[in-house]
């Protein structure tokens, strides 16, 4: 699901299918402008909201990192 959101909103220079989960998305062309789109896409898709503490460049550096953040937010939602 995360890969779908990146394909739609990430504006990458390469096809997301060619990237591994740990690959650097910024090296693949993710810009800080597109990061915001990506975040909005994830919030919509997973019905979550990124708190300010996660609004950092490193949160979106790889599919792995994004996945960790989304999982954390989904867990918090269940706990709440």
């Amino acid at each position: 699901m995360i890969r779908d959101v990146i394909r739609e909103g990430g504006g990458l220079a390469v096809d997301i299918a060619t990237l591994g989960d740990g690959d650097d998305l910024y090296a693949a062309g993710l810009t800080s402008h597109a990061t915001v789109n990506l975040m909005l896409g994830l919030e919509e898709k997973f019905d979550i909201e990124f708190p300010d503490r996660l609004l950092r460049r490193r949160t979106f550096e790889s599919i792995e990192a994004i996945s960790a953040a989304v999982t954390e937010l989904l867990d918090e939602k269940v706990a709440a």
Binding site: A13, Y26, A27, A28, G29, L30, T31
Partner: peptide, 10 residues
């Protein structure tokens, strides 16, 4: 750009 193949933002 880092290399000739890198996207404009890298």
């Amino acid at each position: 750009r880092r290399t000739a193949e890198s996207p404009a933002s890298d």
